[in-house]
Design a protein around this nucleic acid. Structure first.
Length: 89
DNA sequence: GTTGAGCGTT
């Protein structure tokens, strides 16, 4: 079909997170675009520190599109790097 | 306590 894979969720990769941002704060930020089904900052288990990137899953396409279409995302003084998440199947 | 280009720890 097209170059865009089908999916059942609307998932974003979020990079360049401030070190201090938690999953809760990530969800809070992206909730302005609509309902967030899940938001998680990836953590280094050994070090117990943020890896400064994470994932956000919206429950609605409209919210996903709104977040994706905004060119600049600013959180706690950092410009976030928001991309479509890599997802197969 | 530190750092900065990365798609995951349940």
């Amino acid at each position: 079909m097209s170059g865009t894979a089908a999916r059942s969720t609307y998932k974003l990769f979020v990079g360049n997170l401030p070190w201090t941002i938690s999953s809760k704060e990530l969800r809070t930020y992206f909730s302005r675009f609509g309902h967030v089904a899940n938001a998680e900052v990836v953590f280094d288990k050994q070090l117990g520190l943020s890896k400064y990137y994470g994932f956000v899953i919206f429950s609605q396409r409209d919210a996903y599109n709104s977040a994706s279409n905004q060119n600049t995302h600013l959180l706690d003084g950092r410009v976030l790097n928001v991309q479509r998440a890599n997802e197969n199947a």
